[in-house]
Amino acid sequence: MPRIEPLPRESLPQYEDTFRAVEGALGVLPNSTLTMARRPEIMEAFARLNAVVMAEGTVGGVLKQLVATVVSGAAGCAYCQAHTSHVAEQRGADARKLAAVWEFEDSPLFSEAERAALRVARGAGLTPNAVTDDEMADLRRHFDDDQIVEIVAVIANFGFLNRWNDTMATQLERSPLAWATDRLQDAGWEAGKHAGS
Rank of each mutant, 00 (worst) to 15 (best):
Q147I: 10
E112S: 08
F158D: 02
D166F: 07
N129D: 13
F158V: 08
L139C: 08
F160D: 00
P108R: 00
M168S: 06
D133F: 01
L118F: 09
R183F: 12
R183D: 09
S175Q: 06
D138I: 07
W189I: 05
E150R: 11
N129S: 06
P108C: 03
R183A: 11
V154D: 12
L184V: 05
S107K: 13
L118V: 15
W189H: 08
Q171H: 04
D182K: 14
L139Q: 09
A178W: 07
R183L: 14
V149W: 03
S175V: 15
A187Y: 04
A180S: 01
A121Y: 13
L177T: 10
D146Q: 13
S107M: 11
V149A: 03
D186G: 07
A187F: 05
T132M: 01
R141K: 13
G188C: 02
D186V: 13
V152Y: 12
I148W: 10
T170Q: 11
S111C: 06
A137S: 12
D133E: 09
R119T: 15
A153K: 05
A113S: 14
A130W: 02
T170K: 09
D106A: 07
E112Y: 02
T181S: 08
G192F: 01
D144K: 00
G159K: 03
D182E: 15
L126Q: 02
I151L: 15
A116P: 12
Q147L: 11
D138L: 15
L126Y: 02
A169W: 09
F160I: 03
W164S: 05
E114V: 14
A169V: 09
R141E: 06
P128M: 13
A153Y: 06
D146Y: 14
D106P: 01
D138M: 14
R119I: 08
A137I: 08
G159S: 07
L177K: 05
G159L: 02
N157Q: 11
T181N: 12
W189C: 01
M168Y: 04
L126C: 03
Q185T: 03
L139E: 09
A116N: 08
L126S: 02
W189R: 09
Q171E: 04
V120H: 06
N129K: 05
A156Q: 08
N129H: 09
M136R: 07
R141G: 10
Q147C: 12
A121E: 10
G125V: 13
D166C: 11
W189F: 05
A153Q: 03
G192Q: 04
L177N: 01
W179T: 00
E190A: 12
E114G: 13
H142A: 04
W189S: 05
N165L: 07
R141N: 11
R122N: 06
D146R: 14
D182A: 14
A121I: 10
A113T: 00
L184H: 04
R119H: 03
M136P: 04
A124V: 00
R119S: 08
F158T: 01
R141A: 08
G192Y: 04
